[in-house]
């Protein structure tokens, strides 16, 4: 694509919205993943985004906007996973499977009843699907979540390590669990638009995995995860324009390339 053509593309409002969404998702998903992945809930993004899929399908069936419905569905789905793990003591993969299956079944039911959903954009993301409300909600959640982590770093770290250890130090893990569900839910609901249902997990997990190879502390781990997430989504969105492919897929390929380079640096003994 010629330079003038590229500049023309970047003057389009929907392109700017997509890049802004990439910035928000690239920040929020790895940040949330930093607390989800260590709790062995790596596929939480996958499960909860199926709930978002269900919300979009149910919304289409009844002719209402799926945005608000998606937020509510996803937050509820994630909260159910966390409660199942903590209260009933079931393993994370079992709880995730229950939520994933419920979301997929609900979406299937709505589609079979006549809901019209663009499956391609829901499953793999679409730059056209992003709107200002998503961006505002995502940016607000990003700011609030960052402020909470910064102010409560010790409690957040203990909660991530071990629920029991945190509670024995007086940390109210119930509040942490609720906030994690809300933030993760909103992050997923916003990011489904860009990355798609099937690839949200990749953006939540791959930067976190990459960062853990190179970090010597939890703070650096979170910082690197967010940096890799931003890089992956931003370059991924740019690639999606130039190669005319779904932004979720291009972002995942960029993230995998970063992972490959980081794995080589890890093998060479580099730690930050």
């Amino acid at each position: 694509m010629a330079t003038s053509g590229l500049l023309e593309v970047f003057s389009e409002p929907f392109v700017l919205r997509a890049l802004a969404a990439a910035a928000v998702s690239g920040y929020l998903l790895p940040l949330v993943g930093g607390f989800i992945v260590p709790r062995r809930l790596s596929l939480l993004g996958d499960s909860s985004s199926h709930f978002a899929f269900a919300a979009i399908a149910v919304g289409a069936l009844f002719g209402v906007s799926g945005i608000f419905l998606a937020y509510v569905f996803v937050v509820v789905g994630i909260f159910v996973v966390l409660r199942l793990v903590r209260v009933l003591g079931v393993s994370g993969d079992q709880a995730l499977a229950v939520v994933l299956a419920s979301g997929a079944a609900l979406a299937s039911l709505a589609i079979s009843r006549g809901a019209r959903v663009s499956l391609g954009s829901v499953l793999f993301g679409s730059l056209l699907a992003v709107d200002e409300l998503d961006l505002l909600a995502g940016a607000l959640v990003a700011v609030l979540a960052s402020a909470f982590v910064y102010r409560n770093f010790g409690g957040v770290l203990l909660y991530t390590l071990s629920d029991e250890l945190a509670r024995s130090r007086g940390v109210n893990t119930g509040i942490y669990e609720f906030l994690l569900a809300v933030v993760a839910g909103l992050a997923v609901a916003v990011s489904v638009r860009v990355a798609g249902v099937l690839l949200v997990t990749a953006v939540m997990v791959i930067p976190v995995m990459t960062a853990s190879l190179l970090s010597t502390s939890f703070k650096k781990f979170l910082g690197l995860a967010v940096l890799f997430g931003e890089l992956g989504l931003f370059l991924g969105v740019l690639l999606s324009f130039t190669l005319e492919m779904a932004p979720g897929a291009s972002s995942v390929f960029v993230l995998l390339a970063i992972l490959g380079v980081s794995a080589a640096l890890h093998r060479a003994g580099l730690r930050i």
């Binding site: 770093f153 409690g155 770290l157 203990l158 502390s217 939890f218 703070k219 781990f221």
Partner: peptide, 14 residues
Amino acid sequence: LPVSVGEFLRSCRV
């Protein structure tokens, strides 16, 4: 999980 000794002990100190 990359947690340093220093930040773990600082997290425990309340």
